[in-house]
Design a binder for these strands. Structure first.
Lengths: 221, 221
DNA sequence: GTCTATAGTGCGATAGAC
DNA sequence: GTCTATCGCACTATAGAC
């Protein structure tokens, strides 16, 4: 699963060559990386609003003026980080789940992949959640669609499993919601799980066991 | 369960008579109510940072100057809302659970009471979660303690039930975490459940069914 | 491309009239 | 008690030197 801040920033620069004033790709990627990395770090501490561009300038090592070569307003920077990361996450999540066909295995892979991905990109996921309401309407609805999309993947798997008789009759919409809630807790309460020395694998195993206890026919557990 | 914004604000005024410059209690309660109510409304839309005191002045109907008769800085207003609401919530939650003694009933009451309370005080709960990281260290650690306290209530009930043989052997700390996560989803994703016309009762029943499927011995489900 | 310096804005907070 | 008026400051954003 080759995905990191570097990869995502490289992808962004190549897709937005026209909007960025910097000609050398290597320079652009390096600086975008520094900016996004610094912005995530500072925002996750105190929030995007509380982060001033002076803070961002200091943390990223670029001057105020240089920052504006990469985005044209603070709002645009917010949208950049949100949409860039989200698109990448959706793509990766989908590609991993497609490998499995049997519902029970698909459900396990979906939960585990989501947790691994959110572990790898903790700051991004936290940022998506906490800063989504600061977006303008058109971008916020994209964020809501994204919440529903991830959940929809889970719901589809559950419905498939019910039809196949692997899972018993259950409210798949509500089940999808609470499964998503459990997965989100991993990156929303990092401090708690870190303090208790719970690994992402332990957490994944536990969530899967809860989900299966509820969804599986007793005879198959 | 007599608890509302009015009750909490009245309680605050009586406890902080010394700090508030207004002499008439009736006036003070009315204005504190207007301020807190407006602050919650505005903060839950765009965040506490994004809410200016001019916005708050407009929404509450008090002038900038008048606002400063009730708090001495924006930071103090944040702490006021956080600590006031949180203390009240903890007290109410504890008092309701004490009524039950049998582990299974206690668990059901704990989940249901928490959900009802978060329904009644949606804005407060949302505010606690989203604005906690803006607090100074000493206040933020109080917020973290509160997260652990609510979760601790659940964990204690689970441990009791395991000892009594009502629940099977399970990792009660992890179970407490994910139960808390499911309960929190109710007020963190209000837009989603409202859109789907899910009532708090439906949600409570569902969460309880998930928890019991996992925690109960198969024979007792 | 990146810098420094600064323009222009809106903020939190306060003083003083009523 | 509450208001209006205003202060000083920190912010976003930009202009112009290098």
């Amino acid at each position: 699963m080759a995905v990191s801040i570097d990869d995502l920033c490289g992808e962004y620069v190549r897709e937005h060559r026209a909007d960025i004033r910097i000609k050398k790709e290597a320079v652009a990627v390096r600086n975008v990386r520094a900016i996004v990395s610094a912005a995530l770090k500072l925002s996750c501490r105190k929030g995007f609003d509380a982060m001033s561009l002076r803070d961002l300038s200091r943390e990223s090592g670029l001057s105020m003026g240089a920052l504006y070569s990469y985005f044209s307003s603070k709002e645009e920077l917010l949208v950049l980080i949100q949409s860039l990361g989200r698109k990448a996450v959706e793509r990766i999540l989908r590609s991993h789940i497609e490998g499995e066909s049997e519902p029970r295995a698909r459900l396990r892979v979906a939960v585990r992949t989501h947790l691994y991905l959110s572990e790898l990109l903790k700051d991004w996921f936290y940022f998506f959640f906490m800063e989504a309401r600061r977006l303008e309407d058109r971008f916020r609805s994209a964020a809501m669609q994204s919440e529903l999309l991830t959940e929809g993947i889970i719901i589809d798997i559950l419905d498939e499993g019910i039809r196949a008789g692997v899972f018993h009759e259950l409210n798949s919409a509500l089940a999808g919601s609470v499964i998503k809630a459990m997965m989100q807790d991993w990156y929303l309460k990092r401090w708690k799980y870190a303090r208790r020395r719970i690994s992402v694998d332990e957490y994944a195993d536990f969530v899967i066991s809860v989900v299966e206890a509820f969804a599986m026919e007793p005879a198959m557990v």
